[in-house]
Computed example of a mutant assay.
Amino acid sequence: MEFTLGQIAAILGGKVEGDPNQKVGRLDKIQEGKSGGISFLANEKYEPFLYETKATAVIVSEDFNPSKSFSTTLIRVKDAYLGFTQLLEAYAQFSKAAKEGVEEPAYMDPSSSMGIKGYRGAFSYIGKNCTLGENVKIHPHAFIGDRVRIGTNTIIHPGAKICDDSVIGANCEIHPGAVIGSDGFGFAPQSDGTYKAIPQIGNVILEDFVSIGANTTVDCATMGSTIIKKGAKIDNQVQIAHNVIIGENTVIASQAGISGSTEIGKNCIIAGKAGIVGHIKIADNTTVGANTGVSKTIKEPGQTLFGYMGFEMKNFLKSYSIFKNLEGLEKRIKELEKKG
C-alpha cells in the first residue's frame, strides 16, 4: 500500500514541508531509512540521523529546529512520537481491513452467520449457532466453537481458539495461540487421595476493545462468567483463571498469573511474572510490580505493590535496605555479644 505525504499529514493533523504528492509505502527506522519509506524523530539522540537518512519523509514535532541541512521531507505534527504511533495504528488497520471473503478450505456451520466485509482464512472452523458481526476477521487455523458471539471489527489471529459460549465484543484482538474459554482448574479431592474434575459450565465475556496476547489462556467460569472489561490489554503468556474479573483499561504483562475468583479493579497495572492468589479483590489504579506476589485483598486504591509477598513499595524499599545488609548486621551483633 502506498500513501501520499498529503494523505498522511491529513491523518495525523500535520503539515508537509515539501512536496505533498510524494508517495511512501513503508515504515522505517530513521537510521535505516530509504527512498519510499517514512520515519520519525522524537528523541534528540537520533537527530544526527535526520541529516543522513534516505527516507522520503520524517515526522517531527512542530517545535523542532534542525541544526543542519537535510534532504528528506518533513511532516510537522504536535507530537512526533504520538504522530508516528497514530500512523502505525492506521497502517495496521488498513492492512487488516484489506482481507475479505473466504479462503478454501474453510468451514462454517450453516446455522452460523457472519456480517459483511468479513474474512475467513483457510482451515478456519466456525461451529454451530455462532453470530459474527461486520468486518470480523478469522485468520487461518483459528477455531470458533459453538454458540460464540463476536462483535464488529474484531480480529481472531491464526491458531487462536475461542471455545463454546464465549462472548467477544467489538474491536477486540485475539493474538495467535490464545485460548478463550478453556476449562477452569477445578478438581475436588477424594477420600482415596484422587481428584474428581468439577464440570466448568460457565463462559468467558470479553467486552469491547480488549486485546489478548499470544498463547494467553482465559479460563471459562465454573458457573457464571469470567469477565475482562472494556479496554483491558493482556500480554502474551498470561494465565487468567475461572471466574476472574479484570477491570476496565487494566493492563497485564507477560507470565503473570491470576488465580480463580479474584477481582482486579480498573486502570491497574500488573507487571510481568506477578502472581495473584484466588478469591481476593484488588482496588482500582493499583500497580503490582514484576515478580510480586499478592496474597490478600488490596482495599486502598492507587498503591504500588512490590516484593514477595507484595507490600507497599516505600515500605518494601525501606525493608530492602535492611535485607541487603543482614550479613554485616549479623556479624556486628555477634561481635557485640562477645564484648558483652
Results as ranks from 00 to 15, higher is better:
5 L>F: 01
8 I>K: 00
11 I>Q: 10
13 G>H: 05
14 G>M: 08
16 V>G: 07
18 G>M: 08
25 G>W: 01
27 L>E: 10
29 K>C: 00
30 I>W: 00
32 E>R: 13
34 K>T: 11
41 L>A: 06
47 E>A: 15
48 P>E: 11
48 P>T: 03
50 L>V: 02
57 A>L: 09
61 S>W: 02
63 D>S: 15
63 D>R: 12
69 S>G: 15
71 S>D: 11
73 T>K: 02
78 K>F: 03
79 D>M: 08
86 Q>C: 06
88 L>K: 05
98 A>Y: 11
110 P>G: 05
115 G>N: 05
116 I>Q: 08
119 Y>C: 01
124 S>L: 02
125 Y>F: 09
127 G>D: 01
138 I>V: 14
140 P>N: 04
145 G>M: 04
148 V>C: 06
149 R>L: 07
155 I>W: 10
157 H>F: 14
159 G>R: 09
162 I>M: 07
167 V>D: 03
169 G>N: 06
169 G>E: 04
173 E>N: 13
173 E>K: 13
174 I>C: 06
181 G>S: 13
184 G>P: 11
186 G>T: 08
187 F>P: 00
196 K>L: 15
218 V>A: 03
219 D>S: 12
221 A>Q: 09
225 S>G: 01
227 I>S: 00
238 V>N: 08
239 Q>V: 05
240 I>L: 11
249 N>V: 15
253 A>I: 14
255 Q>E: 09
256 A>T: 05
262 T>W: 15
262 T>L: 12
264 I>A: 08
267 N>F: 13
280 I>K: 04
283 A>Y: 02
288 V>Y: 04
301 P>H: 12
302 G>F: 06
305 L>E: 03
309 M>R: 13
310 G>N: 10
315 N>L: 15
318 K>G: 03
323 F>K: 05
324 K>D: 13
327 E>P: 02
